[in-house]
Design a protein around this nucleic acid. Structure first.
Length: 553
RNA sequence: GGCCUGUUGGUGAAGGGGUUCAACACACCGCCCUCUCAAGGCGGCAUUCACGGGUUCAAAUCCCGUACAGGCUACCA
C-alpha cells in the first residue's frame, strides 16, 4: 500500500477520529518541573482487591515523587471491561486513603493531564493508532481468535517461537482491496503493530533497579487495539505515560519481558522513552514446600490489606516496613536516627532489592514495637482510641472515661533514651494494660493471674499503711521497700538472699511481686512505683481488698 | 519448548575480584544490669556465599554448564 491508500484505510477504519496526534501533543504540554523531579504513577486495574504488593509499588511511586519535588498520580487502568468488579475503583481510592498513600493528582484527585481513567481515553489511543496506520506501522488483522490459537498450538508442537510474527502474520501486507472485502464481509479485526524488530539483533537496556538487561529485539506483531476498539495495556501505557509526562515507570517485574515491546512502541510513536524501575515481587518461603512463592491472599493474611486495620497495626508502622523493603539500608538508618521519619530518608533505586523481597512478619512486628516506643503516651492513647472506636466500641468508651489515667499509664518509662518497647499493635493495649481501668479490673482482676502463690495480705497492708510514701522519687521509694523487707525478715536484695537462703523468708523481689500481683493482677508489669503513683493510696487499698476477696473464694 | 531474572546463616539481607568481605537487622541462646517484664550492654550463632567446571597470583564477587525457584510467552493487567 502506498501512502494515499494507507490514508484511505485509516479513514475507513477510524471514520470518527478527527483529531490528530499533534492536537494531543499540544493539549498536554510539558510539565514545569525542576531538574531531577520524578513523575510517577500508580496504575491499578479495578479487577480485584488491593494487596500488599500494590501498596508497595504505590508507596515507591509516592516516595520518589515526593523527595524529588515531582508528582505522583493515580491512573485507573480499566481497559479490560470483562474483568472489572463492582466497586473496584472506589476500593482503590479508599485503600490509598486508609493507608495514607496520597497521590498529588489523578483519578479523583484532579490534575491537568486527565482523564486519568483509560476507559475515557479511547479516542486518544485511536488517534495515535490511526496515525500509525497512515505511517504503515500498524495494520488491521482479521484473524479470528481460534485461528490464532491454532497457530500457537502448532508453534508449540514444532517447538518454534510462539506468536504472530514473520510469515505467521498473514494479514500484514493485505492490499486495500482485500481489507475492504473483509470489511464488507462483516469480518471483525484487531489492530496489530507492524513490528520493525529483528530478533537476531540485541537490545540493551538499563533498568533503574535491575541494571543492565539484554534482550533479542521485539518482532511480534502485538495487538494494539482489541476487536472492540479498546487498547491493550502496552499501547495504553506508552501513550498515557508519554502524554502525562511520566518520567519513571515503577512497576512489578512481571513486566520486564515486555520492555523490548514498550521501547519499540515509544520509538515507533516518536516518543521519548520513560525510565523503568522494575520492583521485585513480595515473596514468601512456603512452610510446607520450602519453595519461594509469591504471597497469596489465602495463605498469607498480611497480603490482604484488611489485615492491618483489623489487627491494629499502625499505618505508619506499615510504611516503615514498606520503606525497609524498598531500600535495604533504610532499616539501619532509621535505627540510628530516632528523631527522624520516613520523609527524611533519601530513597535510591540503587538500594532497592533486585531479587524477590521476602515478607518477614517478625520484622514487621519489631518495627511496630519501635514505632510505639517512639510515640508519647498521649499519642498512643489517641491512636488506640481511634482504632477502638472502629473495632471495640466497649473498650473505646472505657478509654474515653479513663483518659487521664490511661495516658499516665501509657507514659510510664517513656522518657529517656530507652523508651519502653512492649506494644506492637493497638489491639494489644487492652490486654497489656488490663489493670489500668478500674471497672475493667474489678471485673477481670485476678482471673488472668496464672501463678500459684498466695500472698500475705497483712504484710502488704502493713507496708502500705506505714511505709509507702507516693511523693518521693523512685530510688527513695525502693530503699524504703528494702528497709521494710529487712525488718520483716526478707533479704534486701536477691543477691543477699542467694548467699544464704535459709536465713530469710525471701527477698525484696518477693515483696514487690506481692504488691504487683495485688494491684495489677499479673506477675509482669511496667515500673511498679509508677503504677502505684497513678493509682494513689486509696485505690491501692481497694485493690488489696479485691485481692483478699479473690483468695478467700 | 523459547526468552528473561534470581539463588549468601533459623529469618530479612549487605557486599559485585584482593585490604576485617562475610556488614546490619530480626529471631534464638548465654551472661550482665535489675523488684518483674520490656528495653539496654556484652558474647554466641554461615571457615563460607545452590552445585560443577573455567579465567586469575587471587572469585561470594567475572565466564560457562547444571539444578532449583520466579516471571513472560493473552484481543489480562
Amino acid at each position: 500500500m502506498n501512502k494515499d491508500e494507507r490514508i484511505e484505510l485509516a479513514n475507513l477504519l477510524f471514520p470518527n477520529i478527527d483529531k490528530t496526534k499533534e492536537d494531543y501533543e499540544n493539549m498536554y504540554s510539558e510539565r514545569n518541573l525542576s531538574e531531577g523531579a520524578m513523575v510517577t504513577r500508580y496504575g491499578p486495574s479495578p479487577t480485584g482487591n488491593v494487596h500488599l504488593g500494590n501498596l508497595l509499588s504505590a508507596f515507591c511511586d509516592m516516595v520518589y515523587a515526593n523527595q524529588t519535588g515531582g508528582s505522583f498520580f493515580l491512573r485507573i487502568e480499566d481497559t479490560d471491561q470483562k474483568r472489572m468488579i463492582d466497586g473496584g475503583i472506589d476500593n482503590i481510592t479508599s485503600v490509598l486513603e486508609d493507608f495514607a498513600i496520597t497521590p498529588n493528582e489523578g483519578y479523583s484527585y484532579g490534575g491537568d493531564y486527565g482523564p486519568y481513567i483509560q476507559s475515557e481515553r479511547t479516542e486518544i489511543y485511536q488517534t495515535y493508532v490511526k496515525d500509525l496506520i497512515i505511517e504503515g506501522l500498524a495494520y488491521p488483522c482479521f484473524m479470528t481468535e481460534e485461528e490464532e490459537a491454532e497457530i500457537k498450538e502448532e508453534q508449540a508442537i514444532n517447538k518454534v517461537r510462539i506468536g504472530i510474527y514473520g510469515h505467521y502474520a498473514a494479514d500484514r501486507d493485505l492490499s486495500l482491496e482485500e481489507v475492504k472485502e473483509n470489511l464488507s464481509n462483516g469480518k471483525t479485526f484487531v489492530i496489530r503493530l507492524k513490528s520493525p524488530g529483528d530478533p537476531n539483533k540485541i537490545v540493551e537496556f538499563k533498568d533503574c533497579i535491575k541494571g543492565k538487561l539484554k534482550f533479542p529485539e521485539h518482532d511480534i506483531d502485538t495487538i494494539l487495539l482489541k476487536k472492540d476498539g479498546t487498547p491493550t495495556y502496552h499501547l495504553a501505557h506508552v501513550i498515557d505515560d508519554h502524554l502525562m509526562h511520566t518520567t519513571h515507570v515503577i512497576r512489578g517485574d512481571e513486566w520486564v519481558s515486555s520492555i523490548p515491546l514498550h521501547l519499540q512502541l515509544f520509538r515507533v510513536l516518536g516518543f521519548k522513552p520513560v525510565k523503568y524501575a522494575h520492583i521485585a515481587p513480595i515473596t514468601i518461603k512456603d512452610k510446607e514446600t520450602g519453595n519461594i512463592r509469591k504471597i497469596s491472599k489465602r495463605k498469607d493474611p498480611w497480603f490482604g490489606v484488611k489485615y492491618y486495620d483489623e489487627n491494629g497495626i499502625p499505618i505508619e508502622a506499615l510504611h516503615l516496613y514498606l520503606a525497609t523493603i524498598t531500600n535495604t539500608n533504610f532499616e539501619e538508618w532509621y535505627l540510628q536516627n530516632s528523631d527522624k521519619n520516613i520523609s527524611d530518608f533519601e530513597f535510591s533505586f540503587k538500594k532497592q532489592p533486585v531479587g524477590g523481597t521476602s515478607f518477614d512478619e517478625d520484622k514487621l512486628n519489631n518495627l511496630c514495637k519501635t514505632y510505639f516506643s517512639r510515640k508519647s503516651g498521649e499519642e498512643v492513647y489517641n491512636e488506640t482510641l481511634t482504632w477502638a472506636k472502629k473495632h471495640d466500641e466497649e473498650y473505646a468508651k472505657l478509654l474515653e472515661n479513663n483518659k487521664d489515667d490511661m495516658i499516665k499509664y501509657l507514659s510510664i518509662e517513656k522518657d529517656g533514651p530507652r523508651p519502653r518497647k512492649d506494644i506492637s499493635k493497638y489491639s494489644e493495649v487492652k490486654e497489656e494494660f488490663s489493670y489500668a481501668i478500674d471497672s475493667m479490673f474489678e471485673k477481670e482482676n485476678y482471673s488472668k493471674y496464672d501463678g500459684d502463690k498466695v500472698y500475705d495480705i497483712d504484710l502488704i497492708n502493713n507496708y502500705i499503711d506505714n511505709y509507702l510514701d507516693l511523693d518521693v522519687d523512685n530510688n527513695d521509694w525502693f530503699n524504703k521497700v528494702r528497709e521494710f523487707s529487712i525488718e520483716n525478715g526478707y533479704a534486701g536484695s536477691p543477691k543477699d538472699y542467694k548467699k544464704d537462703p535459709d536465713n530469710y523468708k525471701g527477698h525484696v523481689g518477693d515483696i514487690c511481686e506481692a504488691i504487683r500481683v495485688m494491684i495489677t493482677g499479673r506477675l509482669k508489669s511496667p515500673d511498679l512505683f509508677s503504677i502505684m503513683k497513678v493509682l494513689g493510696k486509696d485505690r491501692i487499698k481497694d485493690r488489696i481488698n479485691l485481692y483478699s476477696k479473690f483468695i478467700s473464694k
